[in-house]
Design a protein around this nucleic acid. Structure first.
Lengths: 247, 247
DNA sequence: CGGGCTCTTGATACGCCTCAATGCCCGTGG
DNA sequence: CCACGGGCATTGAGGCGTATCAAGAGCCCG
């Protein structure tokens, strides 16, 4: 069976204090906080607890009471679900700017672990709910965020249910390239902070198939793989057409 | 390739008028409208257009401007995405009470088609947005609905990425049984209004595999299949344990 | 320089897909 | 009334894509 993984849990997150830094937050423009007006930002800042999460640290466990939301400000997080025998499905990667914790009722429906060193703003759910009663733009923004995540989720279902390994990997690379493109820092290098095992568990494949598929994409001249966990997409259109099933 | 399907589109939905029937709506208690207080219901009713959608009718097309929300009041709808060559992934079935259209930005990210005869309340997105400015409970309720759909979506990703055919079918039947159980009408019969092709496209399998798997579950004494597109689950615990990967 | 981890590559196995045939149900028309 | 046709479901035989098992290379870090 594919997707075997161990769940390491240590309940240590390092709060680095209420910084009141929402005004200066680099990710504010792309994140849910962008909806908040100047005079409300100070109140929001009072709710936010800036935290550091070291690489490899698990900080949300499926089934635990859903007490907090997180807004990632740097680094990358993986979200996943497990079966009893250890098979793992990564349901998404959360990069800087992403709001985390919407997919939860009373309890989290997923687990979360930092891939590299992560900084995030933590919000108490109950306090944020109180805050939203005075700041309906925030609630509207969260609804937008949830809608956008639903679109992404459905796209991923299409990938998992109907795409071939080659199409899945092409889709993944294309997606990652879009994230890079949306950042200010212009570069043609696509960073892949996650391991092959993570990519495999995200795409519903095995490590070996991901590796072989990447090799074939490289041999076919579609990508160039670099040593530092990054790669360059040489033929973006062909990659996209493969990703959409026309390749 | 599995999941081949034709998209039939005829833009006919039959409006049967503003009924002002929100107060009496049978699905109100389970649907998003449950958040609305009595004195606001009349205003909501003025927005809702009750519509009939005949079986087989497509009424939302992926990529079209997302103009409306729908609240299903009877019947079952399938939501799906297509690849260029016709491969299809059904991302969900929407039964009575479900609110439809959250997974959309400016344009719908999916298509929708009635499986059997469907009745639904149609809401203009822009008008509903206006309504929500005075009725924040509605917005909060929509956020809840979106969260709940996200949880379901992640569960489905786990199914599509990591479960075997047997586990997928067991999960599907268990899910359907839960829906029946949540209804007032107590019965041990699980109705399957959708075809084998629909089930296959929902589970990321082929018609034949679904059929064979159902046969095996029947031979193993876990279910009884009836002639009228319904079945009975004989051993619910064993089915559940198969569904969760422990089978 | 060794140990562990990640990644790649090869040989083989297997679960599900593909292709094909048959049966069932039901609406239609003679 | 039955013959016919089309859609849906079941079942079987064989093939293919991805998983599994196994080995080795590259790399980081102590």
């Amino acid at each position: 069976m594919p997707g075997t993984a161990l769940l390491r849990r240590t309940a240590v997150i390092i709060p680095i204090g209420r910084l009141g830094a929402c005004h200066a937050c680099e990710t504010r423009l792309v994140s849910v906080c962008s909806a908040i007006e100047e005079h409300d930002l100070t109140r929001l800042a009072a709710l936010a607890v800036a935290t550091k999460i070291p690489a490899g640290q698990s900080f949300i466990g499926e089934g635990e009471p859903a007490s907090d939301f997180f807004n990632i400000t740097s680094g990358t997080v993986k979200l996943f679900k497990l079966l009893a025998d250890g098979r793992r499905q990564i349901t998404g990667f959360a990069d800087a700017g992403l709001f985390l914790g919407l997919a939860a009722g009373k309890h989290y429906g997923f687990s979360a672990e930092a891939i590299d060193d992560v900084t995030a703003c933590r919000f108490s759910r109950t306090r944020l709910r109180t805050f939203m009663q005075d700041a309906p733009q925030m609630e509207e923004r969260l609804l937008q965020a949830a809608s956008s995540e639903l679109v992404t989720a459905q796209e991923q279902m299409l990938l998992l249910g109907r795409k071939t390994a080659r199409e899945r990997v092409a889709s993944f690379l294309s997606m990652r390239a879009d994230i890079v493109a949306s950042c200010a820092t212009a570069t043609d290098r696509v960073a892949l902070p996650m391991t092959r095992a993570d990519i495999a568990d995200y795409l519903g494949l095995t490590i070996e198939t991901v590796s072989r598929t990447l090799t074939r994409l490289r041999v076919d001249g579609l990508i160039e793989v670099h040593a530092d966990h990054s790669l360059t997409i040489v033929q973006r259109d062909r990659l996209n057409s493969i990703a959409s099933g026309a390749g």
